[in-house]
């Protein structure tokens, strides 16, 4: 087992101002529908903590607003994240966190795809395969150590 951090000194970026929605719906209309949009999904995952550092994925630019693609009609969500270093062994943990968080936050009608941004990871294909394999995700969540780790990352920070 390698001791020490994979990326000991990551670059921390500033949080971006939250984008304001173009067409706020009429607050007086009880029955107006505010559809789920990519920004809302991004809000769910932006504050997930990095497994190694006390920073959010947004601050490390693992995720940006552009990482979420949503096809609401077909119920398809795709999240693309960028590990901070190419050989980052935490990529699978980050992916797992994303999956668990979205599983808890999105209605079940969505199919969620999680992948590493092309060309940003040494074992890209393997990671992608692992993250989108239902059985392997389920197996990972049987592992108490992993679940603890994921819960820690998902714990609300109220920052």
């Amino acid at each position: 087992m390698v001791s020490g951090l994979i990326n000991a000194n990551p670059t921390v970026y500033e949080k971006k101002e939250r984008r304001i929605r173009d067409h706020p719906s009429d607050p007086t209309d009880e029955y107006a529908v505010e559809p789920i949009d990519d920004l809302e999904i991004f809000d769910h995952i932006r504050d997930i903590k990095d497994p190694e550092h006390p920073y959010s994925l947004e601050e490390l630019k693992v995720l940006t607003e552009e990482s979420v693609e949503l096809d609401d009609k077909r119920g398809h969500v795709r999240v693309t994240f960028t590990p901070t270093v190419e050989h980052c062994s935490m990529a699978t943990v980050i992916g797992l966190c994303l999956r668990v968080k979205l599983m808890r936050s999105l209605p079940s009608r969505y199919k969620v795809d999680i992948r590493v941004a092309p060309g940003t990871h040494a074992t890209e294909a393997a990671v992608n395969k692992q993250l989108n394999d239902k059985e392997r995700v389920a197996a990972a969540l049987e592992n108490p150590n992993l679940v603890d780790m994921v819960d820690e990352c998902l714990a609300p920070s109220y920052a």
Binding site: E34, I36, E40, R104, L154, P156
Partner: peptide, 25 residues
């Protein structure tokens, strides 16, 4: 709560996510 995650209103969905987190933990 899993039904409320698909609520038409955004505020309700956000609260539902928070509540689900509280209850699942």
């Amino acid at each position: 709560l899993s039904k409320v995650l698909d609520d038409p209103k955004r505020n309700v969905r956000q609260e539902a996510v928070r509540c689900r987190q509280a209850w699942s933990s």
